[in-house]
Design a protein around this nucleic acid. Structure first.
Length: 419
RNA sequence: GUGGAUGUGGCGAAGCGGUUAACGCACCGGAUUGUGGCUCCGGCACUCGAGGGUUCGAUACCCUUCAUCCACCCCA
């Protein structure tokens, strides 16, 4: 049996990586325009960072982390997301000493032990941003605008922005209590998973797909009636900014983020047509996170988006990302040693001039080399023929037009550069 | 973690309890064009995801396992 890659992982082959590079380049460009700098944190961290940062009761931490003890007996986990690491780095590197807020972006692999399906993998890739050190509603709005801008420039359509406020440690517990009080008499009627959700995350019940739960949820208390003054005011201002920027959004009082650290603003961007995993971007404010992991209380807001889901969305709408794989020159030479050596030397010289050059490395026939040049879509073929070579010349063939001229070997570089 | 579907060469895809596993594309070699793209000829699965079982005999039936896809869960 041959060895295959672990479940839920992918090999990205040149055709694919070319597309990724194009998308990544766009993301980086836009981040630069918004004043974000890239941060790269370790792929693994002390497990405790995620216990505290992501939340010890979350699914991610409880059953999806790749956790192991290293040779020093430390408990280490592959990062399941990057926000906790970014915040850890903010504290550890004393970024609070810089001009606030600090605006960071990241892009890279994350790891979660999940059952793979379309749009979900065990090693997947996220791009995300964090605005750390600002409690201003404008920071939330900027994050949201940036997210939408990214998708717009990627030309991804059928987007829906879902917006909510999940309150803060001040008001959320009150709301949670109210929800539980409301659902408790109906506990027996709830679906199985909602009965489990009742204790741990009653807010989720409102998002349940089962009819009974939906129906019961209709009359359930709304979080907007329970937000404290600070949260309500913040929420209102965020909405005002979005409206001013002419951004459409849908209020979704039932939307809950799965990570414990969210406070106040929570949002999600969904795309149609890519299956069940329709959330392409999720984010919000997490004012308590940095304190949770041992820093000074610091407000922050950010989001993460799934790279794979960007490509799902692009594929679903039939877009193919342009990639450049053009070959300038294919050098064809017979097997004779002097000719082959001269060809090899010329290939090197042309590459020094920043041309892309291919040639046969083995001993394919002359004809096979022509075929290769054709299939690789070489713009020109340089042909080392014995007769021409004896005169110090090579043939330059235009593979598109079909024309061919003989040129002295000494002038071929100059000739090509003028092209 | 739960439920459902699927698994034939690089890709797409026939086949079916019986002795050589269609076909298309791709790929490799060759013929012909003065040196490619067209055409033609030839090659390319001791094997039907893997392991076991039933049978005189299985790619086809059964079991297990692995993988993929879909839904749930959860999330990006």
């Amino acid at each position: 049996m041959s060895i295959v890659r672990p479940r839920g992982t992918n090999d990205f082959l040149p055709e694919t990586t070319a597309k990724w590079q194009a998308v990544e380049a766009l993301l980086r460009t836009i981040c630069h325009q918004y004043g974000f700098g890239e941060i790269r944190t370790p792929l693994f961290e002390e497990t405790e960072l995620f216990n505290r940062g992501v939340g010890a009761t979350t699914d991610i931490v409880q059953k999806e982390m790749y956790t192991f003890n290293d040779h020093g007996g430390r408990s280490i986990s592959l990062r399941p997301e990057n926000t906790a690491s970014a915040c850890r780095a903010y504290v550890e590197n004393k970024l609070y000493g810089q001009i606030q807020p600090v605006k960071l972006y990241y892009i890279g692999p994350m790891f979660r032990y999940e059952k793979p399906q379309a749009g979900r993998f065990r090693q997947f890739h996220q791009f995300g941003i964090e605005i750390i050190g600002s409690s201003a509603p404008a920071a939330d709005a900027e994050a949201i605008c940036l997210a939408l801008d990214l998708y717009q420039r990627l030309e991804i359509k059928n987007l829906a922005l879902k917006l909510n406020s999940v309150g803060c440690p001040c008001c959320r517990p009150v709301y949670k209590q109210a929800l539980q009080d409301y659902f408790r008499p109906h506990l027996g009627q709830l679906c199985g998973s909602c009965r489990e959700r009742f204790e741990r995350n009653p807010l989720r019940i409102l998002d349940c797909k089962s009819e009974i739960c939906q129906e019961l949820g209709q009359a359930a208390p709304k979080i907007y009636d329970y937000l404290c003054e600070d949260c309500a005011d913040h929420f209102e201002q965020v909405q005002g900014l979005l409206q001013a920027a002419d951004i459409n959004y849908e209020l979704t009082p039932h939307m809950v983020r799965g990570l414990d650290y969210y406070t106040k603003t929570a949002f999600e961007i969904q795309v149609e047509g890519i299956g069940a995993q329709s959330a392409v971007c999720g984010g919000g404010r997490y004012d308590g996170l940095i304190e949770e992991i041992g820093g000074e209380p610091t407000p922050a807001v950010g989001f993460a988006l799934g790279m794979e889901r960007i490509f799902s969305a692009l594929a679903a709408q039939g877009d193919d990302i342009e990639r450049e794989d053009d070959l300038d020159i294919y050098i064809i030479s017979p097997e004779e040693k002097p000719l082959r050596q001269a060809a090899f030397a010329l290939a090197q010289e042309l590459r020094q001039l920043e041309m892309s050059v291919e040639m046969e490395l083995g001993n394919k026939s002359f004809k096979a080399q022509m075929k290769a040049a054709d299939r690789m879509k070489a713009r020109f073929a340089i042909i080392f023929g014995a007769d021409e070579f004896a005169k110090g010349e090579v043939a330059l063939k235009d593979m598109l037009e079909g024309g061919q001229v003989n040129i002295p070997l000494t002038e071929i570089k100059k000739y090509l550069l003028e092209r």
